[in-house]
Write a protein that binds this DNA or RNA. Sequence first.
DNA 1: ACGCCTTGTCCCTTTACATCA
DNA 2: GTTGATGTAAAGGGACAAGGC
Length: 352
Amino acid sequence: MELALSLGDTPKPFSLLDHHSGSQQQKMKDLGFCMGLGSTRNLEDLHIKNMMREKDDEKVISCSSSSDPSSSPPPLPLQLDLLPFSPVLKSPPPPPPPSLSHRPFPWLSKNLIVESGSQSKLVKVIDAKPLTTVSDGEELAAGEYSSPNNSNSGTSSFQMDFSSIFNGGRSFNSRKRDLELSVNLELVDATERDHRACSRGGGGMSDEDENGLTRKKLRLTKEQSAFLEDSFKEHNTLNPKQKQALAKQLNLRPRQVEVWFQNRRARTKLKQTEVDCEYLKRCCETLTEENRRLQKELQELRALKTNQPYYMQMPATTLTMCPSCERVATTTTSTTTTSPCQQAPPTGSHGL
DNA sequence: ACGCCTTGTCCCTTTACATCA
DNA sequence: GTTGATGTAAAGGGACAAGGC
């Protein structure tokens, strides 16, 4: 029995799957996670290949009970496929529509939409708590937004430039929709949340109280989380520039953005592990059931042989596995059937 | 070229807190 | 109101790579 398991990109497909057709192989390759089960000549051949690349979360599971890579047609494979778990997109995201190059952030509770002519503006109406705790470069960068020196302080028109963060934007339309919905519908909710956060010492970029002693855990707003989620779907890692830009636009410290991405990757990995475990469990159950069925069948055959002694008069039959192609060759005292590879030019390895 | 140090980032583990049933 | 479970932000530490000296 051979078990081959590959997670993520597989530099070299394991031999177990070599017999699959090109399209099947391509399918498996595209999906990225393959698992095969089959027989092998001895237990030493049993191996598990588990290659996982964090950068590519795509997974595909293929489980085959075939023991013969060269058989044609191949035996019924035991195959299970899992949809890719990761939201990471393979295709390069299209460039963001220009109309979205500047968007207000609705989750900034201190902002309120006012109509100014034909253009909506976010006006800071409440400044419940200073958001900056400038102690290092990160916080300085994050604090730029609410700095008194900021040209937008006081009556601010907060703008964000998506294209400055990412080269593309798969979900810019959805972001636009979400942001617009957020602006129009969730402003009150976010305001309440932020006020609660401020009132308990958290909120915004401050994780320390006035004395800098306690470190209250803050809860990111729905909108912040959603935007980070969208960003994660496009890039599950951040370069410093992206981190800075995200932090600035979400009114968070770069460290917070970094930690969020770390935790998000960990959650992704955990969920994928759970999915993989669940699949392997199912696979094991299936194989156990198959083994039970075959054992039963074997018992029935043995019983049949005992009850019908004429079998004894037939030539003895031996099942031998070809070491090269792993096909079963039937050998009797008078005849021998050969495996396909034995019909090929002699290689010296088939001496049945 | 090599070794050492610094810096930045990652992952893993743990902690602390918020939220909910 | 209390409690336990769950989710998650955040910190700490080790590993690793890149760059400077």
